[in-house]
């Protein structure tokens, strides 16, 4: 079997806080193939952003600490990579889009200067050549009147426009992997779809693989090829998107699907009350024994509380789940 573009194995991230060690990411493993779009879903604080940020080692350290595991990108181990080599990778072969378009652009730099920065550094382009490339790029991310925009400052652009600029920055050097950390969360609903389509189109055209971190299952269904569901710092389910939507195996995933707002009225013409998952997300401060979801799970047994279920293949299609009772009557 050929080496996937990115392979994360048994990744562990800890945060050393004055109140104790937070086990933010526990034994997370997944892969991304070339050109594939992988979605990481889960609720706030489940470790999806931390996982995404740790790929490029962008977590502030301290308090964050890589406590184990491996991240291999194009056959290269990233966890032990030197700072200089890592810097050459960032923005060139791996691009990144952040959640907050309002604050992720430097207020004192023009769009043009920020956009050309990466091209000039990684590809050694002259100021003029970089400007030419960037103009074409802005056109591709559908920013009207790009030559005027190049000389503007971030505050002169709307949120959607800024996120387009961030996407342009991230794909400027035609990376093999784009990490998008909740790229649409801060945007207007009408803009969200446009921005997602844009990411999808650009990456398909360039053959770029995408890791899309999100908590929006609707988004996942639209754009992802495969989905990794995370809960309390662990991967609980990993499946192709169609497989996951038609047959969610983990009780948590099933809960997520049940909790999606449904706009179609029920029989009486009234909308049903939103189903919720009972209980709270466990604190990650102490290591959790047993299945982290057990306290909220209807099907939990004594085994669930005593023994942490490992991610295991469920069938030959690559559908994997971390549940003792998966496939049963859960």
């Amino acid at each position: 079997m050929t080496e996937p573009l990115l392979r994360i194995d048994q990744l562990r991230v800890r945060f050393d806080t004055p109140e104790g060690v937070v086990h933010a990411v526990n034994d997370v493993s997944f892969q991304v193939g070339a050109g594939e779009t992988l979605a990481i879903v889960g609720e706030s604080g489940c470790g999806k952003s931390v996982t995404a940020l740790s790929i490029l080692r962008l977590l502030p350290s301290p308090p964050a600490r890589l406590a184990g595991g491996s991240i291999r990108f194009q056959g290269q181990e990233l966890t032990s990579l030197g700072e200089t080599a890592l810097r050459q990778l960032r923005g060139d072969r791996i691009g990144m889009v952040f959640q907050e378009p309002m604050t992720s652009l430097n207020p004192v730099l023009t769009i043009g200067r920020r956009l050309t920065e990466g091209l000039r550094r990684h590809h050694g382009l002259s100021r003029r050549a970089a400007r030419e490339r960037v103009l074409a790029l802005l056109e591709r991310v559908q920013i009207p009147d790009p030559s005027r925009r190049l000389d503007q400052y971030p505050h002169e652009l709307s949120g959607g426009m800024r996120q387009r600029v961030m996407i342009a920055i991230a794909v400027a050097c035609a990376p093999s992997l784009l990490i998008a950390d909740e790229p649409t969360t801060a945007l207007d609903v009408t803009i969200q779809a446009q921005v997602l389509d844009l990411i999808g189109e650009l990456c398909e055209a360039m053959g770029t693989a995408v890791i899309l971190v999100t908590h929006d299952l609707g988004v996942v269904g639209d754009v992802a090829d495969r989905v990794v569901v995370m809960y309390a710092g662990r991967v609980v389910e990993d499946a192709a998107v169609d497989d996951l939507f038609s047959r969610p195996l983990h009780p948590y995933t099933q809960g997520l699907f049940a909790a999606r707002p449904n706009l179609t009225p029920t029989v009486a013409g009234q909308r049903a009350r939103l189903t919720e998952i009972p209980g709270m997300v466990p604190s990650l401060r102490a290591g959790v024994t047993g299945c982290a979801f057990a306290p909220r799970c209807r099907a939990a047994t004594a085994q669930c509380r005593a023994q942490t279920p490992l991610l295991r293949p469920f069938d030959s299609s690559g559908h994997a789940v971390a549940c003792h009772h998966a496939g049963g009557d859960a």
């Binding site: 691009g95 992720s104 430097n106």
Partner: peptide
């Protein structure tokens, strides 16, 4: 965030300091 974003696009220590923080 913009400093984090700049780091993510490969800006080095001095680039961060002089181009992104100092201005």
């Amino acid at each position: 965030t913009f400093v984090e974003a700049a780091t993510a696009s490969g800006t080095g220590f001095f680039g961060l300091l002089f181009r992104h923080i100092l201005p």
